Amino acid sequence: MNTLLHLDASARRRSVSREVGTAFAEAWRAVHPGGTYLYRDLAAAPVPFIDEAWTELCDNVLRTGVTDLDRLHEAARPPGQKAAWATLEPLFNELVAADVVLIATPMYNFGIPASLKAWIDQVTFPKMSLAGRRFVVASARGGSYAPGAPRAPYDYQERYLRDFIAGHFAVEDVTFINAELVNSRIDPNLAHLRAAHDDSYAAALHTAATLAKEY
């Protein structure tokens, strides 16, 4: 049975990244009526930042040599570490259970929101291979960071996520669906690019809905 893990990271309740992510999720659920759909709104219900107890828990796992995922809880000993594991365990279980991970995120300051980074930091330990899973990133960016665009070199969002997912989880199957020039909706200086944004947005919605049928 297929499982989709859907993460939203935008601080806006109504946002382009959420809409593109929803287009993928709805199409995926239509194709997999018996599948499992897991959802987390990382902005509305933020994942705690990692703390010292989390690092100590990681140290204990390394010291004890526990590799069986079902026994990781045994490394959590003092109360602080048990609390860290209680936060991490459901996030970890959702990620491991997923066949497809959908990350809907805006670009903030050339990178990703703190809410998404907090989730990433939580699930980076224990390091594991998720080879065979597929990741989809539904992204909204204020300007254009497409190849050849003047701001393309400043796209640390896609570069970071692609490098992290491949380098940490050994997953090369990562697809980005980017809606560009979102700020043309509100910034008078970008108003002349509104048509280009509308085309990019429509293409992203179409791609999301079409791609989901292949997953």
Rank of each mutant, 00 (worst) to 15 (best):
T36H: 06
A104T: 01
L38K: 01
F125S: 05
L193N: 01
D51S: 10
I50R: 00
V61T: 09
G35E: 13
V47N: 01
A98W: 04
G132R: 06
A118R: 01
Y39A: 14
S10I: 08
A83H: 07
T210S: 11
K82A: 14
D121T: 15
A131F: 09
N2D: 15
T87R: 10
H197W: 09
T207M: 11
R141P: 00
G35L: 12
A203P: 07
F164Y: 15
S10K: 01
A11C: 03
L42A: 03
L88K: 04
S115T: 14
V174T: 12
H206S: 15
N93V: 15
A84C: 09
L88P: 01
L4G: 07
A30Y: 03
L95N: 03
L38A: 06
L190W: 08
E214I: 12
L91A: 07
S129A: 14
A209S: 14
A27W: 05
S10F: 14
T207R: 04
N178P: 00
L95E: 12
V174L: 08
G142I: 06
I177Y: 09
S115D: 13
K213E: 15
A9R: 01
A152I: 13
M1A: 13
L57Q: 06
I103E: 05
A208I: 06
A196I: 11
A170T: 10
L116C: 02
A212C: 04
L190Q: 11
V123G: 02
P90R: 08
I186T: 14
A84R: 11
D51R: 13
M1L: 11
L211S: 05
A138M: 07
E180G: 03
P46K: 00
S144T: 15
N189I: 06
A195K: 02
E26L: 11
V16N: 03
M128Q: 14
L4V: 11
S115K: 01
A97T: 15
S139L: 14
V31G: 02
A27E: 04
D173R: 02
Y108F: 15
R185Q: 13
A166W: 13
Y156G: 02
L130S: 07
F24T: 10
D187K: 04
M107I: 12
L57K: 03
D198G: 00
Y37I: 13
N2H: 13
A98M: 09
N183Q: 14
D59H: 03
L193G: 00
T175L: 05
A98H: 05
A202N: 02
R133D: 08
G34L: 06
D99P: 01
N93P: 06
L38M: 11
V137H: 01
L7K: 01
I112Q: 02
Y39T: 07
R185Y: 14
L211E: 07
A27D: 02
T207P: 00
F176P: 03
